[in-house]
Structure formats: C-alpha cells, structure tokens
Computed example of a mutant assay.
Amino acid sequence: MKAEQGWSATAQLAIAVTMLMGTLSACTTLPGGFGVGRSASPPPEAALADPSAQAFANALPTTGTVGAALDDTDRQAAAKAEIEALEISRTGAPVTWKNPETESSGVVVPGPTYIVNNQECRDYTHTLSAGGAEQLLRGRACRSGDGTWRPLN
C-alpha cells in the first residue's frame, strides 16, 4: 500500500485493517450450516402455533420420496428456516436446517425483496433432503397486513 501525501503509512494500515475487520465480521459459520448464512435447528412443539409457520409447513410436499419421508419435526424445522430466510437473511444467503433424529435437512435461499400491490414479497428456493433423495422447491411469499410472511404457492 503506497502512502498518500498527508496520510502516514500507519494511518493507512489502520484504515485498511478496520475495513477488513468490518467485512469479515459479516461472515459467520454456524453449527450445522454450510459455512455461510444462518442455521435453523428444529423448533420446539409450540413453534407451529403461529398460523404463518403452519402455512409454510402445509405448503411442503407430502408425496414422493422426500415428501413422504418428512415427519412433523422436519416440517416444523423447514417452515422455521423458510420464515427466517425471508425475514432476516440477505439475498442469496442460505439458511440451513437439519433434524439429527431423521437426518432430513434443507437449505433455503431467499431472493431479493420486491413490491407487488403494496406488499413486500420474496421468491426463494428450498432444497430438501429426506429419505435418501433431494428435491428442489421454488416458492414465493409476501408479507401480510399483520407483518407475517405467507406462502403464495
């Protein structure tokens, strides 16, 4: 790094280190994750008391190898991960979940936020792994009047 006139090399190094630290502080590795984004663990039984979470769980497949292999705890964890991805994840930052009892897991990747009819909406993908198979889901959700996310498909 070449020192600019008026800036000492030490000051420039301090600025560079500060910028690097700020950039690195945004990166996290969480248990059960893939090194990027967030990780959602299976939620407690009461987690689906929220009608929004129940709507996401109900939108998951129930047939085929993957759908038939998902148990209620898997569906709860998957729904929680979808809502978490929509609510707090950056575009493209995955939210992972895994049920250690069934070995079922998933990765939810949210797309950018956009507005439709004055509602905040996001598309997302959810790769589900269960029963020895994998299935890619594509979903769309919008924020309802009460502030919760609701799946559209």
Rank of each mutant, 00 (worst) to 15 (best):
T113D: 14
G64R: 03
R75T: 06
Q119S: 11
T127H: 06
N99E: 08
P151E: 13
H126W: 09
A26Y: 12
G92I: 06
T91M: 14
G33F: 12
L20R: 09
S104F: 07
C142A: 08
R38P: 08
S8P: 12
W7H: 11
D123W: 07
A93N: 09
T23N: 14
V95W: 07
A85I: 00
C142E: 07
T73K: 04
S41A: 14
A16V: 09
F56P: 03
D71S: 02
Q12K: 11
V66L: 10
A79I: 01
C142N: 11
S39F: 12
D146S: 10
D71A: 04
A47W: 09
R122V: 01
W7L: 13
A68D: 02
T127S: 07
N153S: 12
P43L: 10
T62Y: 05
T125E: 00
S52A: 07
L13C: 15
D72E: 14
I88T: 14
L60E: 00
V109C: 05
L137D: 02
G64S: 04
C121D: 00
R90K: 10
P44T: 15
C27V: 15
F56H: 02
A81F: 01
R150L: 13
P110H: 04
S52N: 01
P94N: 03
G111A: 04
A130H: 02
L20P: 11
R75H: 02
I88Y: 04
A77S: 02
M21F: 14
N117A: 11
W97M: 05
W97P: 04
L13N: 15
L86K: 03
N58E: 08
D123M: 10
G132C: 06
T65W: 09
I88S: 11
N58A: 14
A3M: 03
C142F: 10
A14F: 02
E84H: 11
G139H: 08
L60T: 09
A57W: 02
A47S: 13
P51C: 06
F34N: 15
G111C: 02
Q135C: 10
A49D: 12
S104I: 07
R138S: 12
Q76L: 09
V109Y: 00
G147T: 04
E45N: 12
G111N: 06
S8A: 01
T18R: 13
L86F: 08
N153C: 03
P44R: 15
E87L: 04
V116A: 06
T73D: 05
A69Y: 00
P94F: 09
Q76E: 13
N118R: 07
P94D: 10
N153A: 04
A57Y: 00
L13K: 15
T63S: 08
E103V: 04
F56K: 04
S104L: 07
P43R: 11
Q76W: 12
P61G: 04
V108E: 09
V108R: 03
N118L: 14
A130Y: 01
A77H: 00
P61Q: 07
D71N: 03
Y114F: 10
W97F: 06
S129Y: 11
L137N: 01
A141L: 08
R90I: 14
G64E: 01
I115T: 07
Q5G: 11
A16Y: 05
T29E: 15
G139Q: 12
V36D: 13
G92Y: 03
V107Y: 02
G92R: 03
L24M: 12
I88P: 05
R90V: 13
A68E: 10
G147P: 00
T113V: 14
P100A: 00
T96S: 05
A130E: 01
